[in-house]
Design a protein around this nucleic acid. Structure first.
Length: 912
RNA sequence: GGGCGGUUAGCUCAGUGGUUAGAGCAUCCCGCUUACACCGGGAAGGUCGUGCGUUCAAAUCGCACAUCGCCCACCA
């Protein structure tokens, strides 16, 4: 097996192979009746139209880390994957495709259009799934869901019908956001606001039977066509004289009343406002109060309607220009000023949204929001990070009813029938569905009108907002409304991980709908972790128009999934966005390579060991690793590495429990690269080739044990390279994958504070020697003589016992150990700490001037430092109020600094 | 208008009361020491946005300001 281990880690082939294996062997399928404590999480379903982008990658990485970690901890772990039908997005894609053939959906008819969308879904909708498989996400593909599949369609029908019967879903004529391009209603959330430079037009409305005008200010002059009043504040004496008067609507010459309403802001514009109840939410409310007519002057596609008289048929913005022009021509345009606007635009297509009066379906939110607020406030549903909690609660507290109907054909059709005779509505009898042309459709169509008995029924043409079905995701995917075993076992989900960008769209609605619909009013998940978004290397949001999007698939092909995953995790501090750069990914690709090469070292040298009569099994079989650590004659490095291992394991486990992915990744990175590779392996190099069989065997066994243990710690972060290497180690019969092995818990009895302290001291000595060598520019090839002096016997003993590694790693010719202080001379350099002095023969090469400069700088720094600290110590308040150990610590530090200072002063005097 | 977050090394970011503030990359010097040049060794680099306060002690807590960004919002 060591035969063909490549020199550099090449992830592509290896990743493809393992991704395929994990998928094909259904490694992450879990049965509800399996034993053990469960852990469940649902994948936020990506849009069927999408392909993997970097945001998915971050989310999937974080979920996969948690899921692999929990699974390795022995939990019965379910990660349930699925795809969202993405109403508007998908419909737009197919409509575009049709348009390229010169077709419109209206020409095809609803049934044929739906067939075409399904066809598109079958052909192109699988992309994201295959990409996810390639990324190695460890979800249970046997349970994959699609929001329009029969079981989920039924869940949506059931939820709708229940809420409808309870009166929480209602139909009515209200002001909604209308996208003239998508030609559908949108919820408030689906509109974004964009700051734009707009204008304020001051328009004169002549007063009937008078020479006077009343001037109003507006940002949307075209809505003038639908004006049915002018409003002023009742206490505004400027306009009191117009009481009972009528104004003449310019251009159309319609008489409209002048009304008085408290809601008018006297300070704004002229203090008089034109009222267009059919095209503005505030005006609509005022229209209701004053029983004003509602004149809809716009067509669904954003043109002026017949009600617009001479302007009928004009595009809305062209009409605006024409109207302004005509007003100016008639002398009715008093003035125009610049005015910054916040324009509502369609989240999906960026078209300016029209507020429009229209009959739509709504869901009452207040009653649903109250329990959700309680769940979060009481801590039953913790939200991490904490600051998202306030945002979540604020939104729920100020929630408004949700417009859930969409004038689309792709989605869950509203199960309500309208009577052609009496106009009453009749719901489907129940949520049962049937399969027509291979797809779900409501089955229990009502036979006659509930109200008048007429059989003249037609189903409501609208479909539901995609987010309505997504809101049921945590239970619709588990078989609800049936009382399935899956639902009993895996609901509530243990956790939800999603981005803050869909906190309201999705998370809040899942919480509300889960609490309302599930038996026992149970929350959909026990914990909500909200992650940030991935930005470009300069922290700027990625967008296609900016051209700064990175394609994760490209990165993966270039540097490997593990490298990208690790970069994302090490940067994923809770509550922060990520500025991702290729350099950063490269450095974690280097980390994967480092892991690979550590393995290469073990396997490569094992060949030599095998020649000496060892076998891999003797040294690295699971039952051998199990018994580690193995002590040897000089056991310090072993005691140390296992102590570090225990510490690091504890840190990783607690960091992961709190979603501090960056901390966990950081810890394992430095353990592996620093402790294991730079120190442990280097330290043991002579031992593994030792003449002493016992010493060699112990070293080998510990090396393999630590290595395999580290692979398991690393596996959630870097699943591929760890799987590949783990498979090359001897494993128990039937062991299939590292991902099914146990995650280390950390053995408290491995902790060994003295070993860590001693090792730290030795590292310090080596570091100091290396420092002197480098500073003095000593030839790296030549070894030099050194002396170490310490008044502490334990230090002298320690160095004596570890003479070989000390001399080797510091490249010393010899190391004399003594207790008397060391003097500096013209051809030596001394450096010291509180515990020891180290003198190295620097020979001719030393640069005395540079050394003096450096010492002076150091002297200055110490002098200042000691001064500050002494003052601090002299402060009575400090001595009295600070904890004892802080005071004592400060005293010790001052003493130490003073010794260092003395040393430097005397060295300076020696040198000059 | 309301709310939230950032401002720490050249860049991108961690750190969130305690003694000499960290990482990755970039920079400089030295090294192809037979696991790894995707490497090894060393170094340099920061008055932690500004001001005031709380505290024995502040990058860390509070207030104000500056500045950048995000979210929410029916200011015509």
């Amino acid at each position: 097996m060591p035969d063909e281990i490549a020199k550099a880690y090449e992830p592509q082939e290896i990743e493809r192979r393992w991704a395929q294996t994990w998928f094909e062997e259904r490694l992450y399928h879990v049965r509800a009746n399996a034993p053990g404590e469960m852990f469940s999480i649902a994948l936020p379903p990506p849009n069927v139209t999408g392909s993997i982008h970097i945001g998915h990658m971050l989310e999937h990485t974080q979920i996969d880390i948690v899921v692999r970690w929990r699974r390795m901890q022995g939990r019965k772990t379910l990660w349930l994957p699925g795809i969202d039908h993405a109403g508007i997005a998908t419909q737009v894609v197919v409509e575009r495709q049709l348009a390229s053939q010169g077709l419109k959906r209206e020409e095809l008819g609803r049934e044929e259009f739906e067939r075409r969308v399904w066809q598109w879904k079958t052909e192109s909708g699988g992309k994201i799934k295959s990409q996810m498989i390639r990324l190695g996400v460890s979800c249970d593909w046997m349970r994959e869901c699609f929001t329009l599949d029969p079981p989920m369609y039924r869940a949506v029908m059931e939820a709708f019908l229940r809420l409808y019967r309870e009166g929480l879903i209602y139909r009515g004529r209200y002001m909604i956001n209308w996208c003239p391009r998508c030609q559908t209603a949108l919820s408030d959330l689906e509109t974004a606001h964009e700051a734009r430079e707009g204008k304020l037009w001051f328009i004169r409305y002549p007063i009937k039977d008078s020479e006077e005008f009343i001037t109003v200010a507006t940002t949307r002059p075209e809505t003038l066509l639908g004006d049915t009043a002018i409003a002023v504040h009742p206490q505004d004496e400027r306009y009191a004289k117009f009481a009972g008067k009528k104004a003449i609507l310019p251009l159309l010459n319609r008489e409209i009343p002048i009304i008085f309403d408290d809601s008018v802001d006297r300070e704004f514009g002229t203090g008089a406002v034109k009222i267009t109840p059919a095209h503005d939410p505030a005006d609509f409310a005022m229209g209701q109060r004053h029983k004003l007519a509602e004149i809809d002057v716009m067509t669904p596609d954003g043109h002026i309607s017949a009600a617009g008289g001479p302007y009928a048929g004009m595009e809305r913005f062209a009409a605006r220009e024409k109207i302004v022009e005509d007003l100016r021509a008639q002398g009715l345009l008093e003035k125009t000023t610049n005015y910054p606007l916040s324009v509502a635009i369609c989240d999906r297509c960026k078209t300016v949204v029209e507020p429009r009066l229209s009959v739509q379906w709504f869901c009452k939110m207040k009653p649903l929001a109250v329990p959700a607020i309680e769940a979060v406030e009481s801590g039953i549903l913790p939200i991490v990070p904490e600051n998202q909690k306030k945002i979540f609660l604020d939104w729920l507290t100020n929630i408004r009813d949700w417009c859930i109907s969409r004038q689309l054909w792709w989605g869950h059709r509203i199960p309500i029938w309208h009577c052609g005779k009496c106009g009453a509505m009749t719901p489907a009898r129940d949520s049962r569905i049937e399969i027509v042309n291979g797809h779900a459709q409501i089955a229990s169509v009502p036979e006659k009108c509930e109200t008048c008995g007429s059989k003249e029924l037609t189903q409501d043409p609208d479909v539901l907002d995609t987010w309505f079905s997504s809101g049921l995701w945590p239970f619709s995917t588990l078989g609800w409304p049936d009382d399935t075993e899956d639902l009993r076992v895996f609901y509530p989900n243990s956790l939800m991980i999603s981005g803050y960008d869909i906190l309201f769209f999705w998370d809040a609605r899942m919480v509300m709908l889960g609490l309302h619909l599930m038996r026992g009013k149970r929350i959909p998940f026990r914990q909500l972790y909200v992650h940030g978004i991935v930005r470009d290397p300069h922290g700027i949001k990625m967008s296609k128009t900016r051209g700064n999007v990175v394609d994760p698939v490209e990165i993966i092909e270039k540097h490997g999934t593990d490298a990208l995953r690790f970069a994302l995790s090490v940067m994923a501090a809770p509550g922060t966005d990520i500025a991702l750069s290729e350099e950063r990914i490269l450095s974690y690709r280097a980390f994967a390579n480092k892991i690979w090469n550590a393995a290469r070292f073990l396997f490569f040298n094992l060949e030599k060991a095998e020649a000496a009569g060892f076998t891999l099994k003797q040294l690295a079989a699971p039952e051998v690793r199990e018994k580690a650590p193995y002590a040897s004659a000089e056991s310090l490095p072993h005691r140390w590495i296992f102590s570090r291992l225990a510490a690091v394991t504890g840190q990783i486990n607690s960091a992961l429990a709190e979603f501090r992915f960056h901390e966990a990744a950081h810890v394992i990175y430095h353990f592996f690269w620093g402790d294991f590779c730079d120190w442990y392996i280097e330290w043991l190099k002579p031992q593994i080739a030792s003449e002493s069989r016992d010493e060699a065997v112990a070293a080998w066994r510990n090396l393999f044990a630590v290595f395999e243990y580290a692979l398991r710690l690393l596996h959630p972060f870097m699943p591929f390279v760890t799987e590949e290497l783990w498979q090359r180690l001897p494993q128990a019969a039937g062991a299939k994958s590292i991902s099914l092995e146990s995650f280390p818990q950390g053995k408290p009895d491995w902790r060994d504070a003295p070993a860590e302290q001693q090792m730290m001291l030795l590292q310090e000595i080596i570091g100091m020697a290396r420092n002197i060598r480098a500073e003095m520019k000593l030839d790296p090839k030549s070894k030099v003589a050194a002396e170490l002096s310490s008044r502490v016997e334990a230090v002298r003993e320690l160095t004596k016992r570890n003479l070989e590694p000390l001399m080797r790693l510091a490249r010393l010719l010899e190391l004399k150990i003594q207790s008397e202080a060391l003097q500096e001379s013209s051809d030596t350099v001394v450096s010291s700490t509180a515990q020891f002095d180290l003198r190295i023969a620097a020979g001719e090469t030393r640069d005395v001037q540079a050394e003096i400069a450096k010492l002076k700088k150091e002297e200055e720094r110490l002098k200042k430092d000691i001064e500050v600290k002494k003052m601090r110590l002299a402060d009575n308040a400090f001595r009295e109020r600070a904890p004892h150990e802080i005071v004592r610590g400060l005293e010790a530090t001052i003493a130490e600094r003073q010794r260092e200072y003395q040393r430097i002063v005397s060295r300076l005097s020696e040198l000059s």
